[in-house]
Design a protein around this nucleic acid. Structure first.
Lengths: 291, 291
DNA sequence: CAGTGGTCTAGACCACTTG
DNA sequence: AAGTGGTCTAGACCACTGA
């Protein structure tokens, strides 16, 4: 199963959930990456094993060394292999990496772990954007936003509460959806709203009265929070969200390396007693969206 | 301040904490990346602004387009810019990225936010590795490990409790350190122990009796947990740690994009009530290190 | 010292976005 | 239609690892 040979099969009739990171590989380096990823997760090289040299892979797949390196860079970013001068690459682990889609969509994630996802919009309203929302969504002073409150379920059990702020254009689409629509993400994609980047902040908060009522817990109970600012391929903000998970439901995993750093540790939300917004300019991602 | 010119200054006498991601840039693409990063965080292009074309940058810095692309790949991985076919790159944000060192070292992180870090080893003992430890650290059946318990402080206040398992070789070095050594990471680096990759799992746990006693909270109080498995440049496991932070102290931030996915959402630790360890084999990163 | 990955170049063609 | 980034090639030299 580590055959790509020189010619490369042009047949594209393969089944569904194949590729690990994205849809079916369209470019050479993606095919090489997909093949190597498969070999690694199949344990063909073993944990701690060494990959073939770049030159060998280039010959095997009938591509240039540059293309092989591009493929290997993908695997390195996924945390599957190391790489350093002087020795062959070493397999770090074989934990299947999640696709970006599964990360962003609660629905896709739930299905990937064989759970039945659900969602119900509790409220969605149009408001003039406040200062924080304007900054987060990079809006003009007179802009309006949609504020949504939604409960997410796993097999009928409420596990997450989602407060999202959308700019006018996206919010209008969301507001038009049925309140019980399971996957907003999929619906939005169908209408051309794509997410290309997301910045996440993960911390711990206490349930407020609304959280408690909707999640069936008590006020003050701890929740795992993910705040997220997503942008489209052009860099335009698409959503700003505050998601709160019931403990025991979910964990985040991240890979970081000296080469590519996307994880950071930050001082907790500077909600120092006394001041609570707006004052300090340029703060990245602070107060939660309104309710 | 966006001048790199063709020749490139050979003078290397600059001050200390300059580069954002690593030490002083040694290669061309690192210099270009550093210069562009500086320009971006200085707001030279504005949020949502467009970067010069690759060709222009190549001419400006006197390098090939390939080298410019390598530099821009770094900034993209840091979440500073987008990139797509057809248009120039767009500035996503200007949040200063943290270096890998600041992420891995509590001490470096604390100093970067102007706090006074401290640490005290409560206990460190040599034991035969159990099954889980052998799997995590990829050890032979007869191997031994060091189990360390340590309290970390910020300006004297206990904020984190750290349970780390080391393989024999590293553990011996740690055990030889003064219990009040502030930065183990720095000491280990001085002795040639480098960390190149780390895999993190972030979730929420309740303080047990030891946590409560050492952190000055009550048993059952919620804590933000980061479990971490670190490897050296050769891919050999260096540590397996379970860190628990007092709420309000710290938050994690991550950038993810459709191109490079290092963040994932996982089902929570399968510690279903009733069974609480060991039982299920082959699970990626489950039970916490022993105390 | 041989092997291997890291850096850099120069050029080509293509896919896509925007006016 | 022009501009721009994405993909790919072929080759060169260097820095480092490990026997």
């Amino acid at each position: 199963m580590v055959n790509g040979a020189t010619a490369g099969d042009t047949a594209e009739g393969g089944a569904g959930a194949g590729g690990a990171t994205a849809g079916r590989p369209r470019t050479m380096y993606q095919r090489v990456a997909a093949d190597l990823r498969q070999a690694i997760t199949d344990g063909a090289y073993g944990s701690g094993g060494r990959l073939p040299a770049e030159g060998d892979l280039a010959r095997r797949y009938g591509v240039s060394r540059g293309t092989v390196r591009q493929a290997l860079a993908v695997l390195r970013a996924e945390g599957l292999v190391t790489s350093r001068r002087g020795t062959r690459r070493v397999v770090l682990g074989s934990e299947g990496t999640q696709s970006f889609g599964e990360l962003l969509s609660f629905t896709r994630w739930a299905r990937s772990i064989d759970e039945e996802p659900g969602g119900r919009v509790v409220s969605i309203e149009r408001h003039p954007a406040d200062a924080t929302e304007r900054e987060q969504l990079r809006l003009d002073p007179w802009a309006t936003v949609y504020r949504m409150l939604r409960v997410r379920t796993l097999s009928g059990r409420p596990v997450m509460i989602e407060r999202t702020v959308y700019p006018e254009s996206v919010g209008a689409l969301v507001a038009a959806l049925d309140p019980d629509t399971v996957s907003h993400t999929v619906r939005l994609e169908e209408q051309g709203v794509m997410i290309a980047d997301a910045h996440h902040t993960i911390d711990l908060v206490r349930a407020d009265a609304d959280d408690a009522r909707l999640l069936g817990c008590r006020p003050g109970d701890p929740l795992l929070r993910e705040r997220r600012r997503s942008t489209d391929p052009a860099g335009a903000p698409i959503e700003w969200s505050d998601d709160r998970y019931v403990p025991g439901t979910m964990a985040f995993t991240v890979h970081s390396s000296a080469a590519t750093g996307s994880l950071a540790r930050r001082r907790a939300t500077p909600e120092e007693p006394g001041q609570d917004a707006d004052a300090s300019p340029g703060q990245g991602q602070d107060p939660p969206p309104a309710r």
